[in-house]
Design a protein around this nucleic acid. Structure first.
Length: 277
DNA sequence: CTGTGGTCCTGTATGC
DNA sequence: TGCATACAGGACCACA
Protein backbone atom coordinates (compact mmCIF):
# COMPACT_ATOMS: atom_id res chain seq x y z
CA UNK A 1 0.00 0.00 0.00
CA UNK A 2 2.48 2.64 0.99
CA UNK A 3 4.59 3.80 -1.92
CA UNK A 4 7.75 5.88 -1.83
CA UNK A 5 6.27 9.11 -0.35
CA UNK A 6 4.48 7.26 2.45
CA UNK A 7 7.58 5.22 3.31
CA UNK A 8 9.68 8.39 3.33
CA UNK A 9 7.21 10.08 5.69
CA UNK A 10 7.68 7.13 8.03
CA UNK A 11 11.47 7.22 7.68
CA UNK A 12 11.55 10.92 8.55
CA UNK A 13 9.36 10.30 11.55
CA UNK A 14 11.61 7.53 12.80
CA UNK A 15 14.91 9.34 12.35
CA UNK A 16 14.86 11.65 15.39
CA UNK A 17 13.27 8.96 17.55
CA UNK A 18 15.60 6.09 16.74
CA UNK A 19 19.03 7.54 16.00
CA UNK A 20 21.45 6.51 18.79
CA UNK A 21 18.71 4.83 20.81
CA UNK A 22 19.48 1.45 22.31
CA UNK A 23 16.97 -1.40 22.16
CA UNK A 24 16.31 -2.65 25.67
CA UNK A 25 13.78 -5.35 24.78
CA UNK A 26 11.90 -6.78 21.81
CA UNK A 27 8.52 -8.51 22.01
CA UNK A 28 7.16 -10.43 19.03
CA UNK A 29 3.38 -10.66 19.37
CA UNK A 30 2.76 -12.41 16.03
CA UNK A 31 5.30 -14.62 14.25
CA UNK A 32 4.32 -13.80 10.70
CA UNK A 33 5.99 -10.39 10.32
CA UNK A 34 9.35 -11.91 11.31
CA UNK A 35 8.92 -15.07 9.20
CA UNK A 36 12.08 -14.34 7.23
CA UNK A 37 14.18 -14.74 10.37
CA UNK A 38 14.64 -18.49 10.22
CA UNK A 39 15.63 -19.05 13.84
CA UNK A 40 12.15 -17.94 14.90
CA UNK A 41 10.44 -15.08 16.75
CA UNK A 42 12.12 -15.61 20.12
CA UNK A 43 15.56 -15.68 18.52
CA UNK A 44 14.67 -12.52 16.58
CA UNK A 45 13.87 -10.73 19.82
CA UNK A 46 17.00 -12.03 21.55
CA UNK A 47 19.22 -11.12 18.61
CA UNK A 48 18.19 -7.46 18.72
CA UNK A 49 18.10 -6.68 22.42
CA UNK A 50 20.99 -4.45 23.45
CA UNK A 51 21.78 -3.10 19.99
CA UNK A 52 21.76 0.58 19.01
CA UNK A 53 20.01 2.25 16.07
CA UNK A 54 21.64 4.58 13.57
CA UNK A 55 19.85 6.79 11.01
CA UNK A 56 16.94 5.06 9.22
CA UNK A 57 17.36 4.74 5.46
CA UNK A 58 15.17 3.97 2.47
CA UNK A 59 15.34 2.74 -1.09
CA UNK A 60 12.08 2.71 -3.01
CA UNK A 61 9.50 1.19 -0.70
CA UNK A 62 12.06 -0.61 1.45
CA UNK A 63 13.11 0.86 4.74
CA UNK A 64 16.03 -0.25 6.85
CA UNK A 65 17.06 0.65 10.34
CA UNK A 66 20.86 0.45 10.53
CA UNK A 67 22.42 -0.74 13.76
CA UNK A 68 25.71 0.72 14.92
CA UNK A 69 27.40 -2.69 14.69
CA UNK A 70 26.89 -2.82 10.91
CA UNK A 71 23.76 -4.97 10.73
CA UNK A 72 20.27 -3.59 10.05
CA UNK A 73 16.61 -4.30 10.54
CA UNK A 74 15.14 -4.46 7.06
CA UNK A 75 11.47 -3.53 6.84
CA UNK A 76 8.81 -3.52 4.16
CA UNK A 77 5.38 -2.16 4.99
CA UNK A 78 3.63 -4.31 2.40
CA UNK A 79 0.01 -3.25 2.01
CA UNK A 80 -0.77 -2.25 5.55
CA UNK A 81 2.37 -1.99 7.70
CA UNK A 82 2.95 0.92 10.07
CA UNK A 83 5.63 2.03 12.49
CA UNK A 84 4.26 3.83 15.50
CA UNK A 85 5.94 5.60 18.41
CA UNK A 86 4.12 5.24 21.72
CA UNK A 87 4.49 5.25 25.44
CA UNK A 88 4.88 1.63 26.56
CA UNK A 89 1.69 1.80 28.60
CA UNK A 90 -0.40 3.27 25.77
CA UNK A 91 -3.22 0.94 24.66
CA UNK A 92 -2.21 -1.44 21.91
CA UNK A 93 -3.34 -0.64 18.39
CA UNK A 94 -5.40 -3.32 16.71
CA UNK A 95 -2.99 -5.58 14.75
CA UNK A 96 0.12 -4.58 16.68
CA UNK A 97 2.74 -7.25 15.90
CA UNK A 98 6.19 -6.36 17.25
CA UNK A 99 7.32 -4.07 20.10
CA UNK A 100 10.77 -2.49 20.51
CA UNK A 101 11.44 -0.86 23.87
CA UNK A 102 14.03 1.90 23.66
CA UNK A 103 16.39 3.22 26.32
CA UNK A 104 14.62 6.59 26.49
CA UNK A 105 11.30 5.02 27.45
CA UNK A 106 9.71 5.24 23.99
CA UNK A 107 8.22 2.13 22.43
CA UNK A 108 8.52 1.53 18.69
CA UNK A 109 5.66 -0.60 17.42
CA UNK A 110 5.24 -2.47 14.15
CA UNK A 111 1.54 -2.61 13.36
CA UNK A 112 0.25 -4.54 10.35
CA UNK A 113 -3.24 -5.66 9.51
CA UNK A 114 -2.56 -7.87 6.48
CA UNK A 115 1.03 -8.88 7.22
CA UNK A 116 2.20 -8.88 3.60
CA UNK A 117 5.26 -6.98 4.71
CA UNK A 118 7.56 -7.69 7.60
CA UNK A 119 10.84 -7.26 9.41
CA UNK A 120 14.10 -9.14 9.06
CA UNK A 121 17.63 -8.87 10.38
CA UNK A 122 20.09 -8.08 7.61
CA UNK A 123 23.59 -9.30 8.36
CA UNK A 124 26.00 -6.48 7.54
CA UNK A 125 23.17 -4.54 5.91
CA UNK A 126 23.64 -1.14 7.53
CA UNK A 127 24.82 0.50 4.31
CA UNK A 128 22.62 -1.43 1.86
CA UNK A 129 21.06 -4.77 2.77
CA UNK A 130 22.08 -7.55 0.39
CA UNK A 131 18.45 -8.68 0.39
CA UNK A 132 17.49 -5.62 -1.66
CA UNK A 133 20.40 -5.58 -4.08
CA UNK A 134 17.88 -6.29 -6.85
CA UNK A 135 15.85 -3.17 -6.02
CA UNK A 136 16.74 -0.32 -8.36
CA UNK A 137 17.52 3.19 -7.20
CA UNK A 138 14.45 5.38 -6.82
CA UNK A 139 13.81 8.75 -8.45
CA UNK A 140 14.80 10.64 -5.29
CA UNK A 141 18.21 8.96 -5.17
CA UNK A 142 20.92 11.49 -6.08
CA UNK A 143 22.73 8.69 -7.93
CA UNK A 144 19.70 7.87 -10.08
CA UNK A 145 20.55 8.78 -13.68
CA UNK A 146 17.18 9.54 -15.27
CA UNK A 147 18.53 9.76 -18.81
CA UNK A 148 20.24 6.40 -18.55
CA UNK A 149 17.05 5.00 -17.03
CA UNK A 150 14.92 6.37 -19.88
CA UNK A 151 17.33 4.87 -22.42
CA UNK A 152 16.96 1.50 -20.73
CA UNK A 153 13.18 1.73 -20.55
CA UNK A 154 12.69 2.43 -24.28
CA UNK A 155 14.40 -0.90 -24.99
CA UNK A 156 11.55 -2.77 -23.30
CA UNK A 157 8.56 -4.24 -25.03
CA UNK A 158 6.37 -4.26 -21.89
CA UNK A 159 3.60 -1.78 -21.31
CA UNK A 160 4.98 1.41 -19.78
CA UNK A 161 2.88 1.03 -16.63
CA UNK A 162 4.27 -2.44 -16.03
CA UNK A 163 7.78 -1.03 -16.39
CA UNK A 164 7.06 1.79 -13.93
CA UNK A 165 5.85 -0.78 -11.40
CA UNK A 166 8.91 -3.03 -11.87
CA UNK A 167 11.00 -2.34 -8.78
CA UNK A 168 14.11 -3.75 -10.44
CA UNK A 169 13.92 -1.01 -13.10
CA UNK A 170 12.99 1.98 -10.95
CA UNK A 171 11.80 1.59 -7.39
CA UNK A 172 9.25 3.35 -5.22
CA UNK A 173 6.41 3.69 -7.72
CA UNK A 174 3.21 1.79 -6.97
CA UNK A 175 -0.22 1.68 -8.55
CA UNK A 176 -1.35 5.12 -7.40
CA UNK A 177 1.68 7.14 -8.43
CA UNK A 178 2.07 5.20 -11.69
CA UNK A 179 -1.44 6.28 -12.68
CA UNK A 180 -0.82 9.85 -11.53
CA UNK A 181 2.49 10.12 -13.42
CA UNK A 182 0.94 8.74 -16.61
CA UNK A 183 -1.97 11.17 -16.28
CA UNK A 184 0.39 14.11 -15.85
CA UNK A 185 2.48 12.99 -18.82
CA UNK A 186 -0.57 12.26 -20.99
CA UNK A 187 0.45 8.69 -21.79
CA UNK A 188 -1.71 5.56 -21.70
CA UNK A 189 -0.27 2.91 -19.41
CA UNK A 190 -0.73 0.14 -21.97
CA UNK A 191 1.63 1.83 -24.43
CA UNK A 192 4.61 -0.45 -25.10
CA UNK A 193 7.70 1.27 -23.72
CA UNK A 194 9.59 0.82 -27.00
CA UNK A 195 6.88 2.80 -28.81
CA UNK A 196 7.86 5.86 -26.77
CA UNK A 197 10.91 8.00 -27.38
CA UNK A 198 13.44 8.70 -24.65
CA UNK A 199 12.19 12.26 -24.19
CA UNK A 200 8.65 11.02 -23.51
CA UNK A 201 9.91 8.51 -21.01
CA UNK A 202 11.95 11.25 -19.35
CA UNK A 203 8.79 13.33 -19.04
CA UNK A 204 6.98 10.39 -17.43
CA UNK A 205 9.84 9.89 -14.97
CA UNK A 206 9.92 13.63 -14.25
CA UNK A 207 6.15 13.51 -13.66
CA UNK A 208 6.54 10.54 -11.33
CA UNK A 209 9.20 12.31 -9.30
CA UNK A 210 7.14 15.51 -9.19
CA UNK A 211 3.91 13.81 -8.09
CA UNK A 212 5.74 11.89 -5.38
CA UNK A 213 7.42 15.09 -4.18
CA UNK A 214 4.03 16.79 -4.02
CA UNK A 215 2.61 13.84 -2.08
CA UNK A 216 5.54 13.84 0.32
CA UNK A 217 4.97 17.54 1.02
CA UNK A 218 1.40 16.69 2.07
CA UNK A 219 2.35 13.78 4.26
CA UNK A 220 1.52 11.09 1.70
CA UNK A 221 -1.74 9.59 0.46
CA UNK A 222 -4.23 8.13 2.95
CA UNK A 223 -7.55 6.62 1.93
CA UNK A 224 -8.23 5.10 5.31
CA UNK A 225 -6.51 4.20 8.56
CA UNK A 226 -4.16 1.76 6.84
CA UNK A 227 -1.59 4.42 6.08
CA UNK A 228 -0.58 6.83 8.84
CA UNK A 229 2.69 8.34 10.01
CA UNK A 230 4.58 7.35 13.18
CA UNK A 231 2.17 9.44 15.25
CA UNK A 232 -0.94 7.89 13.71
CA UNK A 233 -1.77 10.88 11.51
CA UNK A 234 -3.08 10.62 7.92
CA UNK A 235 -1.61 12.35 4.87
CA UNK A 236 -3.68 14.63 2.68
CA UNK A 237 -2.55 13.91 -0.85
CA UNK A 238 -5.67 11.89 -1.68
CA UNK A 239 -7.42 15.23 -2.22
CA UNK A 240 -4.91 16.08 -4.92
CA UNK A 241 -5.14 12.90 -6.98
CA UNK A 242 -6.07 13.54 -10.62
CA UNK A 243 -6.67 10.01 -11.86
CA UNK A 244 -6.46 7.34 -9.17
CA UNK A 245 -9.85 6.54 -7.64
CA UNK A 246 -11.73 9.06 -9.82
CA UNK A 247 -13.74 6.72 -12.06
CA UNK A 248 -16.53 8.60 -13.91
CA UNK A 249 -15.42 11.91 -12.40
CA UNK A 250 -14.39 14.63 -14.87
CA UNK A 251 -10.75 14.84 -15.92
CA UNK A 252 -9.41 18.01 -14.34
CA UNK A 253 -7.67 18.89 -17.59
CA UNK A 254 -10.29 18.20 -20.27
CA UNK A 255 -13.51 17.24 -18.50
CA UNK A 256 -13.87 13.76 -19.98
CA UNK A 257 -14.94 11.09 -17.47
CA UNK A 258 -12.02 9.16 -15.99
CA UNK A 259 -12.07 5.49 -17.00
CA UNK A 260 -11.24 2.56 -14.76
CA UNK A 261 -9.88 -0.62 -16.27
CA UNK A 262 -8.34 -3.82 -14.98
CA UNK A 263 -4.65 -4.03 -15.80
CA UNK A 264 -2.17 -6.46 -14.31
CA UNK A 265 -4.90 -7.73 -12.00
CA UNK A 266 -5.45 -4.33 -10.43
CA UNK A 267 -7.27 -1.12 -11.20
CA UNK A 268 -5.94 1.48 -13.56
CA UNK A 269 -7.45 4.93 -13.88
CA UNK A 270 -6.84 7.20 -16.87
CA UNK A 271 -8.37 9.93 -19.01
CA UNK A 272 -9.42 8.46 -22.37
CA UNK A 273 -8.94 11.84 -24.07
CA UNK A 274 -5.67 13.08 -22.55
CA UNK A 275 -4.18 9.58 -22.49
CA UNK A 276 -5.22 7.90 -25.76
CA UNK A 277 -4.11 4.34 -26.41
C1' DC B 1 13.44 -11.87 -21.18
C1' DT B 2 8.18 -11.39 -21.21
C1' DG B 3 3.52 -11.88 -19.41
C1' DT B 4 0.00 -14.32 -16.49
C1' DG B 5 -1.97 -15.88 -12.51
C1' DG B 6 -1.84 -17.45 -7.88
C1' DT B 7 -0.38 -16.75 -3.04
C1' DC B 8 0.49 -14.69 1.42
C1' DC B 9 -3.45 -12.11 5.12
C1' DT B 10 -7.48 -9.29 7.13
C1' DG B 11 -10.88 -6.00 6.64
C1' DT B 12 -14.41 -3.10 4.35
C1' DA B 13 -17.83 -1.99 0.95
C1' DT B 14 -21.41 -3.53 -1.91
C1' DG B 15 -25.20 -6.22 -3.63
C1' DC B 16 -28.76 -9.69 -3.11
C1' DT C 1 -30.18 -8.54 9.25
C1' DG C 2 -27.39 -12.23 7.14
C1' DC C 3 -24.54 -13.89 3.67
C1' DA C 4 -21.60 -13.92 -0.41
C1' DT C 5 -18.61 -11.62 -3.26
C1' DA C 6 -15.29 -8.18 -4.93
C1' DC C 7 -11.69 -5.38 -3.88
C1' DA C 8 -7.59 -3.19 -1.49
C1' DG C 9 -1.95 0.83 -2.10
C1' DG C 10 2.87 -5.09 -2.82
C1' DA C 11 6.20 -8.57 -3.74
C1' DC C 12 7.34 -12.88 -5.10
C1' DC C 13 7.13 -17.28 -7.37
C1' DA C 14 6.00 -20.94 -10.68
C1' DC C 15 4.92 -21.54 -15.12
C1' DA C 16 4.15 -20.92 -20.13
Amino acid sequence: MPELPEVEVVRRGLEPALNRRRITAVTVLHPRPVRRFEAGPDAFAAALAGRTFGVPRRRGKYLWLPLTDGDAILAHLGMSGQFRLNAPDAPHQRHVRVLFDLDDGVQLRFVDQRMFGGLSLSDGGADLPAEIAHIARDLFDPDCDADALAARIVMKSSAIKRVLLDQSVVSGIGNIYADEALWRAGVHGATPARDLDAASVRSILDAARAVMADALAQGGTSFDALYVNVNGESGYFDRTLNAYGREDEPCLRCGAPIVREAFMNRSSFFCPVCQPR
